[in-house]
Design a protein around this nucleic acid. Structure first.
Length: 207
DNA sequence: CACATGATCGCCT
DNA sequence: GGCGATCATGTGG
């Protein structure tokens, strides 16, 4: 993990978590079953602090990746390399990787340390006034928030610059589908592990 | 609307 | 050496 990323978030994503009545979930939130965390993260906020202000969006689409038994997961078969190492951390850490040589993907690690499962953040919608569909896709979400591999391994719980905030109120209506872009994953390609807000215009694909 | 393609490079075999 | 947990743009119907 590198302490200081120079990447800056889109200034149009500035918001005030306290004004929105958001809370920071404890470590136990992230250590639960990965599917439960993937569902609970729909409606939560992902945010980055930059120059004393929070910038972020409300998560509207996630995917669960279930570790050693999941052919679509980077940790499939217990694979453990420098890149994937953050997936083996305790729930509540961040795992970021580069895909297609140009886009980053951000994941929230789940489960106790040693169980390499995670939730991919596929899309979010910005605060009131932000451009539509700015974060409608995992690569776009990372670009808008300035999240890169330099942030991989960060702890989302505590006093760091990237955190999750949860709403107290009603939960969104959740849709479920197969995961996107994992056709190579044999039996795992058909698992219903994508979760999205059925009422959001900012999910990555039409469903 | 439904594909099809190119960009671009780190990672793993 | 092959190939992605993607995206923007292009074509054709």
């Amino acid at each position: 993990m590198i302490a200081n990323s120079t990447n800056r978030p889109d200034s149009r994503l500035a918001f005030d978590p306290h004004a929105l009545g958001l809370d920071e979930p404890p470590r136990t939130f992230f250590r639960r079953r990965t599917v439960a965390v993937a569902r609970a993260l729909v409606g939560a906020w992902i945010a980055r602090r930059f120059r004393g202000r929070w910038h972020g969006g409300r998560i509207v689409e996630t995917e669960a990746y279930l570790g050693a038994g999941d052919r679509a997961a980077h940790s499939w078969g217990g694979r453990r390399t420098d890149r994937v190492e953050p997936m083996y951390a305790e729930g509540g850490h961040l795992y970021v990787f580069l895909v297609y040589g140009m886009h980053h993907c951000a994941n929230v690690v789940t489960r106790p340390a040693g169980e390499p499962e995670a939730v991919l953040l596929r899309a979010a919608e910005g605060p009131a006034g932000a451009p539509g569909r700015l974060m409608a896709g995992p690569g776009k979400l990372c670009a808008a928030l300035g999240i890169t591999v330099a942030d991989s391994g960060r702890d989302l719980v505590g006093d760091g610059p990237i955190r999750i905030f949860s709403p107290r109120g009603a939960r969104p209506r959740i849709g479920v589908s197969v995961r996107i872009g994992v056709d190579y994953a044999r039996e795992a390609k058909d698992w219903p592990l994508r979760f999205y807000d059925r009422d959001s215009p900012s999910v990555s694909l039409r469903s």
